[in-house]
Simulated scan of single mutants.
Amino acid sequence: MKDLLTVKNLTKSFDENGPVVDHLDFTVREHEIFALLGPSGCGKTTCLRLIAGFEHADEGEVRVEDEVLESPSKHTAPQDRGIGFVFQDYALFPHLTAIENVAFGLTDIPKYKRKVFAEEVLCRTGMGDYKDRNPSELSGGQQQRVALARAIAPKPKLVLLDEPFSNLDAILRESTRKEVRSILKKAGMSALLVTHDQEEALSFADRIAVMNDGKIEQIGTPEEVYYKPKTKFVAQFLGRTNLFHADATGSSEITTKLGPMRINADADGRILCSIRPEHLTLKTPGSEQEEQIGTIIGREFKGHDITYHVLLNGEKYLVHTDNRVLFEQEDPVVIKPLESAVILEEKE
């Protein structure tokens, strides 16, 4: 698939405390939804603003197809980049109706055609029946779809989404992001989403770049970054996990406090590993002498599943099971791995 957006060595500082965006490299492909995922303050929104043209880069470049839009020697104005932008607060004009908001940016279309075209785009986002309402008369989810319609109406090559679902309640957030993803895919558009919400990135994006302290720690599909994290930060930020050190002897099997376990690659020496709670299960101790017996010290019942906190050999482990694996507080248990542990890179 052809690359649409190329970000190369992108760097931005605001003061002497160092770069907020630190030599970022990534691409967004045609028809792809790409997410920048990271905690507040990691630089993801600044990166988005550099791509949109709201900030000037100190180093590096932003290129859409073969055209350089941003570099230390060139800065293309936001309105000339051919990029759509959906703000966190939607930024709709309060004195304009939904259809007038969408038609506002259609400067390349003759005036007499703008409202007809705007109505077509509103219908694609499911907002055709609300075209004559002002933003104050719309719910948060409806405003979000009008903002998306306004962004995609000029047919930009790329749409930037800055935490677009964060102002919605949990149920509306889930349904709206499904609708927005469907709209973008049907329109064949590329999109770059900025979010701190792991579930949102995993369910919405085709690929994810996990950011930490201005840098990208890993890029991959949702499955890759979740099941095969490269660093301790990625493993912990993408969800609950169990971290432990072990001594490897050149094979894909190690001995741990849990007992024998497989790892995802051959290794030698001291290694740091991660295994997700759902990749472990519990059983009642049997007669095997080599079994390591732990104790249930906590239990979180969630209806369809249960998370157990287990103390074993002085270490605490999380085990995530379905609701048919039933144990109570203080029960003795044996932890059994269902999948291989993942070796993590350890920073100097």
Rank of each mutant, 00 (worst) to 15 (best):
222 P>K: 02
207 R>D: 07
253 E>N: 08
242 N>W: 14
272 L>C: 08
218 Q>Y: 09
217 E>S: 06
265 A>K: 13
222 P>E: 01
269 G>T: 02
268 D>G: 02
244 F>H: 03
207 R>P: 10
259 G>T: 01
236 Q>Y: 13
245 H>M: 07
222 P>H: 04
218 Q>T: 01
212 N>K: 11
224 E>C: 06
244 F>I: 02
224 E>S: 13
258 L>S: 01
266 D>T: 03
222 P>Q: 03
249 T>D: 13
254 I>C: 07
219 I>L: 07
269 G>W: 03
210 V>T: 00
214 G>R: 01
256 T>W: 04
271 I>A: 09
215 K>W: 11
245 H>I: 00
250 G>Y: 11
240 R>E: 15
223 E>L: 15
209 A>I: 05
228 K>L: 10
217 E>P: 07
228 K>C: 07
237 F>Y: 13
237 F>V: 00
243 L>P: 09
225 V>M: 07
241 T>E: 06
230 K>G: 08
252 S>D: 14
253 E>G: 05
257 K>H: 14
246 A>T: 05
235 A>F: 10
255 T>G: 08
223 E>K: 14
229 P>F: 01
264 N>K: 12
265 A>D: 13
261 M>F: 11
271 I>T: 06
215 K>P: 06
260 P>Y: 06
230 K>M: 08
219 I>F: 08
248 A>P: 09
